[in-house]
Design a protein around this nucleic acid. Structure first.
Ligand SMILES: [Mn+2]
Ligand SMILES: [Mn+2]
Ligand SMILES: [Zn+2]
Ligand SMILES: [Zn+2]
Lengths: 134, 134
DNA sequence: TATTAAATTGTAATAATTACAAACTTGTAA
DNA sequence: TTACAAGTTTGTAATTATTACAATTTAATA
């Protein structure tokens, strides 16, 4: 199970796995549709009625800082979260709002003007209309 | 001057060029550092003291809808605006916060999983540390 | 000029995120 | 086990970016 490796990553970084954090990670692993904070909060709240939205924010912030989760900012209105940190692109359908993954070969991208820039993070996203909405 | 072509574009789309809109376009042309709404508003207010921030929002919204200006959402905290609508990438320095342009060849990017997706917009951005901050 | 439409303005409302302090939980060492 | 410190969660308040809206002003048209 992929959770074992996640747990190891957490331990390595001295983040202990509270019940809330476990549930948030489980949720992200099971819902790789790039959910918003609100979706994560609302859904997990069903099983943890005392959950605070602040905890969701705190946990996600920590996971992002540690590089275990990635934020997707395509619209200014909503941050989305992705537990898949492999290089891949995102396609946002302007009709249904869904964000789809697609595979990219980042090394194939020819770019100039970045000599002496230290790159930590690469993002590619497209916008348009998905097949279902076409 | 590039403004003549911009004016034509506006006329073509039945957007008339008010004084406020002219000043906002001029500002974007002269400040291609990807300014925020607040920067645009604060600077132009010096020459138009009655300017309303709502007007800045309205104008930018319209210009983006018409494809004359592009929004950059790298951080969830700030939308930035770019009058350069040519294909190019953005590099955000995590230290100084500046956003740098770099050239890309979008056609060189190998990607899979987008059959039957209609693509309107392609964005590429990197994050890291710029040479000055290194 | 008179009428209509478009644009601007200021204020109020909305919504996402962060700050903060109190309460609770966990880990550790005597 | 107990006691203390450190870490975590929670709820509320504050902050901030953006949008809604109605009144006023300006521009376009006949
Ligand atoms: Mn993804
Ligand atoms: Mn640019
Ligand atoms: Zn769709
Ligand atoms: Zn820098």
């Amino acid at each position: 199970m992929m959770f074992e490796s996640l747990k190891k990553e957490l331990k390595k970084r001295n983040i202990n796995l509270s019940y809330q954090r476990l549930k948030i990670l489980e949720y992200l692993a099971q819902n790789q549709c790039h959910p918003t904070v609100d979706q994560i909060y609302t859904d997990i709240q069903k099983s943890i009625p005392t959950l605070s939205k602040t905890t969701v924010y705190n946990t996600l912030k920590k996971l992002v800082e540690e590089g275990l989760v990635r934020v997707i900012n395509i619209e200014d209105t909503e941050s989305r979260y992705d537990i898949n940190i492999e290089d891949h692109g995102h396609f946002k359908c302007e009709n249904c709002g869904n964000i789809f993954d697609f595979s990219i070969n980042m090394d194939s991208l020819v770019c100039n003007g970045l000599d002496n820039f230290r790159i930590f993070d690469r993002h590619v996203y497209f916008k348009g209309i998905c097949p279902q909405c076409s």
